[in-house]
Design a protein around this nucleic acid. Structure first.
Lengths: 140, 140
DNA sequence: TTGCGTGCAAAGGTTTTGCATGGCA
DNA sequence: TGCCATGCAAAACCTTTGCACGCAA
């Protein structure tokens, strides 16, 4: 991962803290703004976008777009280097991101490259669906 | 697939034609607008969105969001019913959508459901990466 | 004739940019 | 002191909505 660049500011620090404390789910720019506002120390929207862009570029944070209707969401990635080596499952109901360490699945990369001539980028690829918890809730 | 509903108009017809003739790649709303403008018969943006929405709902067309920066893209799906039964590969370089009929891969659905308690929605899930052609080009 | 489709313009929301100010190193 | 970061406001975009008119059935 690229090292942090630029100056350290309170805002930058608190934003990263917020992302880390929500690392089990994605969070929208609007939510981030609301959080800082409720803390009594509002953070300008422009700053949020600028900082998030940098974090995404550094690979610290992942950006999701879904259908663009509600705006993009962001999520902290625990260990960016490890995430190149497994796939991700994202629950469309609760927003949880599941890191899937599974040898069986990593074989599909090779399989597709060898048999179909396509080179998957695991960093960009996310399986969308429903997690066990949400599936159970909706059954009831 | 749900049957077509409502009236048939020239615009509706021509839009579908355009999508079909570009069924090997995705196309943006802006491109669609530019195409109709260059044909001398402009098509209102609102109409494009409204028709695309209906096509997406009917399952005739697939919608991609990427990072929301350039706006959503749309692509005609040759055989919607067949597409529920295989995965899709999308080349990030050329935008080509590849339908991957492969028994080996269809097993991963079951595998993930059984071993990881997660239910993938193949309609929402796309593998992103680079196709053989683009990989070759970039090597040179 | 009925009611959907279209076009235009306006509105809504998200994201970006410019510029002056403030804070880190 | 230099330079980056921030904040505010304005702008740029993409997308949706309202309304009157046109066109298919």
């Amino acid at each position: 991962m690229k090292r942090d660049s630029g100056y350290n500011t309170k805002q930058k620090e608190k934003l990263l803290e917020l992302l880390i404390s929500n690392s089990d789910r994605h969070i929208s720019v609007a939510e981030i703004g609301a959080f800082f506002a409720s803390e009594g120390s509002p953070l300008g929207t422009a700053t949020i976008y600028r900082q998030l862009d940098k974090l995404v570029e550094r690979g610290v944070v992942r950006k999701y777009s879904f259908d663009g209707k509600t705006g993009a969401c962001y999520q902290y990635i625990e260990d960016a280097s490890a995430c190149r080596e497994h796939f991700h499952l994202k629950c469309l109901s609760c927003g949880r991101l599941i890191h899937l360490d599974c040898q069986h699945l990593m074989g599909i990369n090779q399989h597709i490259a060898q048999h179909h001539g396509f080179y998957i980028d695991p960093a960009q690829t996310v399986f969308y669906g429903k997690c066990a918890d949400c599936a159970e809730k909706e059954d009831s």
